[in-house]
Amino acid sequence: MEFSPVSIYQRVSVDAALYVLRDINRNMTVTQNHITTGMRVEKASDNAVYWSIATTARTDNKAVSAIQDALGMAAATMGTAYTGVQSVIDVVSEIKAKLVAATEDGIDKNKINEEIKQLQEQLRSVSESATFNSDNWVVLTNDATPTQPRQIPASFIRNADGTISIGMLSYHIDNTPVGATTSKDARYLIDDRATGSGEYGVLTSAYFATELGAAQNYVLMTSKNGTTTGQVVISVTSSTTQGQIGQMISVVDAALTQLTTVGSAFGALEKRINLQNDFATKLHDNITAGIGRLVDADMEEESSRLRALQTQQQLGLQSLNIANATYDTVRQLFQNF
């Protein structure tokens, strides 16, 4: 009698169990990676569209962060400039009070003048000290152009066509004069340029005196490097007349009015910088949140999925053990043939 060959190597149930277990292990690896990295889209192969959007948004967010830093520096510079102007207003007010006191009969004008000189020295000290990160917005030197606006990076803009641009905050410390220069063009505290006569500094401009028709070109102080011929620094002596003191008081009062204008301008710009900085902070946070919604893993969901896959893995191992046991039983039946 002849027996036809019989194959016992048909392991359909074992192969099926292995296939299911491999699929479970693969899903577990993906889920564990999501939990470990915190991201469900880590590379372009995970989701090309989301990865591209998130990558572009990340680069934009770095630019927004740089804008925040620039605004922070600008706010500090503006705050320093405003503080300088406010301090100068206080000192000039003191000089005005001293001049008023000098009109009293029997007052020692020479002693009054000593006090005025000390206050004038304080004016320069305060003005030159109003510097942040080597940037002084209240003292005009040879390196600056009085009619050129100061600009501060304020926003990062990605246009619809993909191009980018930087929005700027511009502050015209001095508007370009129309016709002759006037006292209104004095938007700095001090103008120390060698090419001028101090006309762009409130404390160094003689235009307050000329516009008031004063007998002399009174100034609170002279420019260090400019042409100061004909200018007279405000001071009193025993021979100073009441009329002269009255003219000095008028010049100082006009300077105080212009100082208030300068201080208001700095204060308004500082406020705008702070508002823009608040917006940049919220924009940065929103972009970060948007990136997270695109690529971040939901940790609760991933944790639940991992627990489910671990349960499936245990069941898959049990199924494989059962399939292997069944196969061994069949193999033993045929081992004697």
Rank of each mutant, 00 (worst) to 15 (best):
M1K: 06
M1I: 13
Y9N: 15
V14K: 14
V14D: 08
D15G: 15
V20I: 08
D23M: 04
D23R: 15
N25T: 15
R26V: 04
N27P: 13
M28L: 15
T29Q: 05
V30F: 11
T37G: 09
R40M: 08
V41A: 02
K43I: 09
K43C: 06
A54I: 08
A54K: 10
A57L: 13
K62R: 12
V64S: 00
D69E: 13
A74C: 07
A74L: 09
A76Y: 06
T77E: 07
M78H: 13
T83D: 14
V88T: 12
I89F: 11
A97E: 10
A97H: 08
K98Y: 12
K98P: 08
L99E: 01
E104Q: 11
I107Q: 04
D108R: 05
I112S: 00
E114D: 15
E115F: 02
I116S: 00
Q120G: 00
E121W: 08
E121K: 09
Q122W: 02
R124S: 04
V126E: 03
S127R: 04
A130D: 10
T131M: 07
W137R: 15
W137K: 15
P153L: 01
A154H: 04
N159Q: 09
A160P: 07
D161S: 02
S165V: 00
G167D: 05
L169K: 05
Y171Q: 11
H172W: 13
N175Y: 13
P177Q: 00
P177V: 01
S183R: 10
D185T: 02
Y188E: 01
Y188Q: 03
D192W: 02
R193C: 09
R193T: 15
A194P: 08
T195L: 12
S197H: 06
S205P: 02
S205D: 08
F208Q: 05
G213P: 03
A214C: 14
Q216T: 09
Q216P: 08
M221Q: 11
S223Q: 00
N225K: 12
G226P: 07
T228M: 01
T228A: 03
T229G: 11
G230T: 04
V232T: 04
S238V: 04
T241C: 01
Q247A: 06
V251Q: 09
V252I: 04
D253R: 01
L259I: 08
T261E: 10
T261N: 14
T261Y: 10
S264W: 10
A265M: 08
G267D: 11
G267I: 01
D278R: 04
T281I: 01
H284W: 11
D285G: 08
I287C: 09
T288C: 07
A289Q: 14
G290K: 06
I291E: 07
I291S: 06
E302R: 12
L306P: 15
T311F: 14
Q312G: 02
Q312T: 03
L315H: 12
L317A: 10
L317Q: 14
N321P: 07
A323G: 01
A325C: 01
A325Y: 11
D328S: 14
T329R: 11
T329V: 12
L333K: 03
F334Q: 03
